[in-house]
Every structure is written in structure tokens, then in C-alpha cells.
């Protein structure tokens, strides 16, 4: 391809990526090293609020932001604080303290580490399950009677089509204190069941939800891959006396390997940004993810405060985490790529 044609094709995409991905990323990186705060002043204020039937007035000293006379906006100052926001987030002194006293569990009481622990376990534990379940469905559909394939494919794809927030809310409503499934199990067993009262049951439901939601994606890819398996190799394996399992192990899986890597890449990227399960399951008290932590910093409180700097730092650390996770599968793809050319 001529260089100019290449530029014409790639140009718009590169431009969009610079504008909508690279530029915001640089801005977030800058903000994670800065703190912007209003200029505060202390003033005496008398505030009158309704009691019941009479008014109560109190005079107190309040700390309020200074408003610029000319622009009518709040005056702010921006200072470079280096790694302070990262320090606030990571709280290393408390981590070292927990390690030196041997109370490892205390590390997980710091929001960032708590979120990192869950995000990592959630990502790495669901990965093999998604690949396994996806492959199982693909093999089942591939061996199903032709007339059944259409409906089976449709039904297997449904969880993937449902919007993640709706999917997680649906599971929450099924299993919450007086949900349908909880009530049924309670009737059968006679025990009072509270799935959302402790962390481990919530996490268990989250894993089930994630596999249920993502496995169809793996299934579609694997199913396409299965159509291209070399029939001659399979037949010769049969002639050599290989059973079903051996054929799967030595012919089909090696053939699907690039697809497995591909699915692993996509799954790692997607799941590391877990967010809607936390919101849908209302699990903030027990389980949080890194993406949710960033969102929480950005959410203004009643007084309108947001922690933009810590949110930026947390977003940068999330991105670094994804890059670290992707290094292994990417190296493998790169080696395979070099091997074939």
C-alpha cells in the first residue's frame, strides 16, 4: 500500500484517538499531580432556619470559599503536589505498619488495596471460567442437531445482549432478602438466607454473574473457530485411535490457541474495569472495585466537594494495572506474530 493511501485510511482514526483518548489521558495525568482548591476564608455568619413554628438563629464562624468580585466565580488556586495524591491513595505508612506487625488483613481496610484485591481476584478467577464455559457451549452447539442450533445459539447469546447494569440488577433482585430465589430456597430449607449480608456470598454471586454475562462472547468466537478446524487432521487422529478428549486436547485446543489468547486479552481489559456489578449489587459496604473507587472520588457530596486529584491518581493506577496484566498475553502474541513472519 502506498504511504499516502495508508495515511488517508489511518489518519482519521489516529486523529480521533489523539483527541478523545490521548489528550484526556494527558490531562488526567497532569491533574493527578495537581490539587485545585478554592481560596477559603473564615467569616462570622448568622444563619436562621425554621424550628417548628419559631425560627432559630445561630451565629457561627464558617469556612467558605472566596468569591471573585469581577467574575462572580469562586477563586481557586492550583498547586503542583507531586505524588501527594498517590500517597493519599496508597497510604503506604499504614501498609508497612500492617506488614511489620504481621496483621496483613489491615491492608485490606484501605480503600485502594481493598479495591485492588477484589479487582484482581475477580479478573483472574473468572478468566479460566469464561474460557472453559465458552468452549463447552461452543462444543455442545457444534455437536448439536442442525435444527436445534439456531435456537440454542440465540438463547446462549441472550446474557451477552442484556445491558450489564440491567443484568446485575436482575441478579440482585433475584437474590436479595425477599427476592424470588431467596424466598424459594428459604421455603425448601427452612433457613433464613441473606446473600447480601456478607462479602463472600456477594463475591460468589458476582463471579457467577460475570461468567454468565461474558461466556457467550467466548462462545461466539470459539464457535467460529471450530468451523475452521482441519477435518483431515481430525480424521487421522480418529484413525490413530485418539478418543474425544485426546482429539480436544491435541487437535482442537492448539488450533483455537490464538483465539483463547484474544479472548483472554479482551476479558482482562474489560473485567479489570468492573464497575456495574458494584453498583448493581449495591456491594459498596463489602466489596469495591478500582473503577468504582474512581467514580466515588468524582461523585460530589452534599456540599459539592469532589476529590478530583485522587480520582485522577486512582484512574492512572487502574490504567497501569491493566497494562501490567496485558504484558504476558501480549508478549505471547508478539512472539507468535514474529514466528509466522
Amino acid at each position: 500500500m502506498k504511504f499516502r493511501t495508508l495515511v488517508a485510511f489511518v489518519g482519521p482514526s489516529v486523529f480521533m484517538m489523539l483527541l478523545f483518548i490521548a489528550a484526556p489521558l494527558v490531562s488526567v495525568l497532569m491533574q493527578s499531580f495537581q490539587v485545585t482548591q478554592p481560596v477559603m476564608q473564615q467569616i462570622e455568619v448568622e444563619t436562621c432556619t425554621p424550628g417548628f413554628l419559631t425560627q432559630t438563629c445561630i451565629t457561627e464562624t464558617k469556612t467558605v470559599p472566596l468569591i471573585d468580585e469581577e467574575t462572580g466565580k469562586t477563586q481557586t488556586t492550583t498547586t503542583w503536589v507531586g505524588l501527594q495524591s498517590y500517597r493519599n491513595l496508597l497510604q503506604m505508612p499504614r501498609v508497612w505498619d500492617a506488614i511489620s506487625t504481621g496483621q496483613w488483613g489491615n491492608i485490606l481496610q484501605i480503600d485502594f488495596w481493598k479495591a485492588l484485591r477484589f479487582t484482581l481476584v475477580f479478573t483472574l478467577l473468572t478468566l479460566p471460567m469464561v474460557i472453559g464455559v465458552g468452549l463447552a457451549i461452543a462444543l455442545a452447539v457444534n455437536n448439536a442437531v442442525r435444527s436445534l442450533r439456531g435456537p440454542v445459539i440465540f438463547i446462549s447469546l441472550l446474557p451477552f445482549i442484556i445491558t450489564p447494569v440491567i443484568g446485575s440488577l436482575a441478579i440482585y433482585w433475584l437474590f436479595v432478602g425477599d427476592g424470588i430465589i431467596t424466598s424459594l430456597i428459604e421455603r425448601w430449607t427452612g433457613n433464613d438466607i441473606a446473600m447480601f449480608a456478607q462479602a463472600w456470598t456477594i463475591e460468589l454471586l458476582m463471579y457467577v454473574y460475570q461468567v454468565w454475562h461474558v461466556a457467550p462472547f467466548a462462545f461466539v468466537i470459539f464457535y467460529a473457530g471450530l468451523q475452521t478446524v482441519n477435518m483431515d487432521t481430525l480424521e487421522s487422529a480418529v484413525i490413530d485411535g485418539a478418543n474425544r478428549w485426546e482429539r480436544l486436547r491435541h487437535v482442537i485446543i492448539p488450533h483455537l490457541m490464538p483465539l483463547i489468547i484474544f479472548i483472554a486479552l479482551i476479558h482482562l481489559m474489560d473485567t479489570y474495569r468492573a464497575f456495574e456489578v458494584i453498583v448493581g449489587f449495591r456491594s459498596q459496604a463489602h466489596v469495591i472495585s478500582l473503577q468504582w473507587l474512581t467514580y466515588d472520588f468524582l461523585t460530589p457530596d452534599d456540599a459539592g466537594n469532589r476529590a478530583i486529584s485522587r480520582a485522577s491518581a486512582s484512574a492512572m493506577l487502574t490504567m497501569i494495572g491493566i497494562v501490567v496484566l496485558l504484558i504476558l498475553p501480549l508478549r505471547r502474541t508478539w512472539r507468535d506474530h514474529k514466528g509466522t513472519t
Partner: peptide, 28 residues
Amino acid sequence: PAYPSTTQMGLLHTAVGNELPAFFTGER
């Protein structure tokens, strides 16, 4: 008392809301 309308109260409210659950789950 009336709920205080101050910037500090907003910050404290968030801090309390985020840190309290660990006490009720028995971690702290």
C-alpha cells in the same frame, strides 16, 4: 440540632459513610 450546612460537614459525611461499614462487618 439542625443538620449543619457547611463544606466540612459534606466532607465528614462522605468519610463516615465510606469508613463505617468496616465496623459493622466486624473488620475493625
